Simulated scan of single mutants.
Amino acid sequence: MKTLPAALAALLLAACQPQDPEGKPAPPPADAPATANPVGTTMDISKPITARGTEPFWALSIDGKAFRLTRPDRPDLTAEAPGAAISDGRAVWVAKTPDGRQMTVTLYASECSDGMSDLKYPMSAEVVLLDEALRGCAAKTAELPREGG
C-alpha cells in the first residue's frame, strides 16, 4: 500500500519537469547558471600539476603516475597510479601508497578560489584517503597563480 503514494509522487514530479514537444527534457533557460563541469570540457594533464588546500593546509604534486601529498606535522605520503580515468570535465586517479593504502585524486575543470586569497585556479581538486577528504584548487605547476601577478 505504501508503494502507491510513492509511485504517484514520482509520476507527479515527472509531469512537472519542462519538456520539449517530443517529450524530451527541455534545454535549460538562457539565464541558467553554468554547470560546474561543462560537458565537452577537456583537461590537459600531460604536465606536472600542483593542487593545494587550506583548512587543513595541504599540497599534492602530480607528475605523470607519481603523487606526493604534503601536510604540516605529518610525513609526506607518496603514491602511484597506472593512469587517470578521464571524462568530460574531470580526471580521476586511484593511486596506491607503498604500504597498499588507497588515495583517490580527482581534478575538475572548474575555476576555483582557495578561500584565503583572490587567486583563481583553473581546476578544483579532491584527495580522498581512507580517513579523510581534502578539497582545494589545482593548476599546472608551471602556471600556478601567484600573488601580485
Rank of each mutant, 00 (worst) to 15 (best):
F57I: 11
E55H: 11
P28V: 15
A6T: 09
E126A: 11
Y108F: 09
A84L: 05
R68N: 04
L12S: 14
G23I: 06
N37L: 14
T35I: 04
I45R: 07
P21Y: 00
L130C: 03
I86Y: 03
D31R: 02
V92N: 01
P25Y: 09
A30V: 10
M1H: 06
L134T: 12
A6V: 12
L77Y: 14
D99M: 04
R52Y: 03
A26F: 08
A142V: 08
I49K: 15
P48G: 03
P18E: 00
R146P: 10
D118W: 01
A15T: 14
P25Q: 05
D114I: 03
S110G: 07
L12H: 11
I86M: 09
P122Q: 01
Q19H: 10
G89H: 08
D20S: 10
A15Y: 00
L4W: 04
T41K: 13
G136F: 05
A91I: 01
E147I: 07
L4D: 11
S46I: 00
C16D: 07
A32D: 03
L134G: 13
P5K: 04
A139I: 06
Y108C: 10
S61D: 10
L11R: 13
S113E: 10
L69I: 03
P56M: 14
E80L: 13
D118L: 01
R52S: 15
E132K: 13
K24C: 05
P122T: 01
A85H: 11
L119H: 01
T35M: 06
A81P: 02
P21W: 00
T78M: 10
